[in-house]
C-alpha cells in the first residue's frame, strides 16, 4: 500500500484532474492507461485546479490573475 498524488494534464499543462490514492497499483501502470494527448504528473500537496504544469521547469505554477 502506498500513497500516490498525481495530476492528469492536457498537452498545455492545464490540470484536468487531481488524484490522491492509497493503493497497491503502481504509477507506471496508471500511466499506461492515460489517453493520448494527456500526461500524468506527480505533485506535492499544494496543487489546486487553478495551477498549471510548466513542462520546461517541471513544476506547477499558479497563473497570474
Amino acid at each position: 500500500m502506498q500513497f500516490l498524488r498525481f495530476t492528469i494534464t492536457d498537452s498545455d499543462g492545464n490540470i484536468l484532474q487531481i488524484n490522491e490514492a492509497y493503493t497497491t497499483e503502481k504509477l507506471e501502470d496508471i500511466q499506461k492507461r492515460i489517453p493520448a494527448g494527456k500526461q500524468l504528473v506527480e505533485y506535492g500537496p499544494e496543487v489546486t485546479m487553478r495551477h498549471k504544469y510548466n513542462a520546461v521547469k517541471k513544476e506547477f505554477e499558479l497563473p497570474e490573475e
Binding site: 488524484n19 490522491e20 490514492a21 492509497y22 493503493t23
Partner: peptide
C-alpha cells in the same frame, strides 16, 4: 482495501 479522491472540473 484502497482509498482515493479525484478532483476535477
Amino acid at each position: 482495501k484502497s482509498w482515493q479522491r479525484v478532483t476535477f472540473s
